[in-house]
Design a protein around this nucleic acid. Structure first.
Length: 152
DNA sequence: CCCTGATTCGC
DNA sequence: GCGAATCAGG
């Protein structure tokens, strides 16, 4: 089962809706949750689950010891509103993450997202940028986690 | 033990 | 690029 643009779009849609990877895999069919997660990662999505604490990564077959830094580049601020928490955010509010999830500063955009939508108008264009349009990723969704040598 | 996503690595 | 295996948290 290949990832056609239609399937990718559906994937992004369902993922944005808040469905779990297994749920998406079940709905779409032909793919396992691993495939969904893998695709989500490659799309540059991901970033919601249970990564409360930054972990030294899954050390598996690594010849070098690396460690991730607690850096998060999500700062797509949109003009003023309150700071909804994960608990307080409503189903019709924009769920765009702002700030560092590991700090108290973390919150969601919270602007009116419309009925059944996941993001406000501002963030929708960031979340669902035209797949046929070469987006300038010079400043959008930069989430490069620099490797830091563990200086013993 | 069930679920969740995250990451790596072989293909 | 894709996804199974694996890891880690709830």
């Amino acid at each position: 089962m290949a990832w056609t643009e239609e399937r990718v779009e559906q994937l992004k849609q369902l993922w944005g809706e808040g469905l779990s990877a297994s749920q998406i895999a079940s709905k779409m069919g032909g793919v396992t949750r691993n495939a969904v997660i893998g695709k989500v990662h490659r799309l540059g999505l991901a970033g919601r689950a249970t990564p409360a604490a930054p972990k030294p990564r899954v050390v598996r077959h690594q010849t070098e010891e690396t460690r991730i830094a607690p850096l998060y580049g999500l700062d797509q601020l949109c003009p003023g509103i309150d700071k909804p928490t994960i608990s307080s955010i409503g189903g019709n509010q924009c769920k765009w993450p702002i700030g560092d999830p590991t700090t108290d500063d973390f919150h969601f955009c919270g602007q009116s997202a419309g009925h059944g939508k996941s993001y406000c108008a501002y963030h929708s264009q960031l979340a669902f940028q035209p797949s046929t349009g070469r987006r300038d990723d010079s400043q959008t969704r930069q989430r490069q986690l620099p490797k830091v040598k563990q200086v013993g």
